[in-house]
């Protein structure tokens, strides 16, 4: 009798997932920008509103890294202070989107039935407006404070975030571990919070990075419509608008181009990091 030797199944070599150097460069940039934004009041830079911090319309120099605008205000410090509002608006907007949209989406995906119909219809209606048109409608009726602008952009984030949360919840609600919890008699609330939430949060995390980028850009869009934060408050959008009047743009493009560059790098970093996080946690793409 010949002995059949069973060779043990060698598991396929799964390449270890890495986020890559570029990811950490992006995170590094975001960290630096956030740090400068946070520390702007104590950093040794000119007051962003100080007229005549340098001569008017000067190019970049050692004293004024990004040059000065028509009133001699320092463009670097205006960009640093602008980061405060732009980042806060982005952060608040996506937080509102995730808290409200995420909860609604999970409720819709978990309970199904008429609740799902109603919530999905609300999402669908919100998405039936071109985003900026909805923003215009809201800001037209309210004031243009930091709170309104953040709230408006947050409202825009509700439907896309909610749809993703609903879709992820639908998928996970069918999985065995959720079924098991159900059989064990867990209450709906416990299943949603303990079983579903941790799984839904991962795709939401990736989306929140992308969403923050979108909100920062949307603030810029509102600034061009004259509907961003009022008064002396500086945002990246408002700085770019300031620098893009024909005469300013022709004579000293630095006023518009430096904030554009900083904003572009920030949005690029957010998009890239979001994309990498999504791929990193994407179960479908991994080999097991």
């Amino acid at each position: 009798m010949t002995e059949i030797i069973e060779t043990p199944q060698v598991p396929e070599v799964v390449p270890k997932k890495v986020l890559g150097v570029a990811f950490w460069v992006a995170i590094g940039w975001l960290f630096i920008v956030s740090l400068i934004a946070l520390l702007a009041p104590v950093l040794p830079i000119d007051d962003p509103g100080e007229i005549g911090a340098g001569g008017p319309r000067e190019g970049p120099s050692w004293a004024n890294w990004f040059g000065t605008d028509a009133l001699g205000r320092d463009v670097f410090s205006r960009t640093a202070w602008g980061a405060r509002i732009s980042l806060v608006v982005g952060l608040l907007a996506i937080t509102l989107g995730i808290v409200v949209g995420g909860s609604l989406g999970m409720i819709a995906g978990f309970f199904r039935g008429w609740i799902d119909h109603v919530i999905s219809f609300v999402f669908f209606t919100l998405l039936s407006f071109p985003a900026l048109v909805l923003a215009l409608l809201i800001t037209a009726t309210f004031d243009r404070s930091l709170r309104t602008v953040s709230l408006t952009l947050g409202v825009l984030a509700i439907a896309p975030v909610g749809r993703l949360a609903r879709a992820s919840t639908l998928v996970f609600a069918e999985r065995e571990f959720v079924q098991a919890a159900r059989v064990l008699g867990a209450k709906s609330r416990r299943i949603i919070v303990k079983e579903l939430l941790p799984n839904v949060l991962i795709p939401m995390g990736a989306l929140s990075l992308l969403g923050m980028g979108i909100a920062i850009v949307a603030e810029g869009g509102l600034a061009f419509l004259g509907l961003s934060v009022e008064g002396d408050a500086i945002s990246w959008g408002k700085s770019i608008v300031d620098g893009s009047q024909s005469r300013d743009l022709q004579n000293n493009p630095n006023v518009a181009m430096f904030p554009i560059g900083v904003m572009f790098l920030t949005v690029l970093s957010l998009n890239f990091a979001g994309d990498r996080v999504r791929e990193y946690f994407d179960v479908k793409e991994s080999a097991f």
């Binding site: 869009g221 770019i240 893009s244 024909s246 022709q250 493009p253 518009a256 690029l268």
Partner: peptide, 22 residues
Amino acid sequence: FGVLSIPNFALGVILLYLFALK
């Protein structure tokens, strides 16, 4: 990927500067 990260108003301002003003 880069183009998708440029806000449209930023691209507009850059194009305006280069092709219309300069």
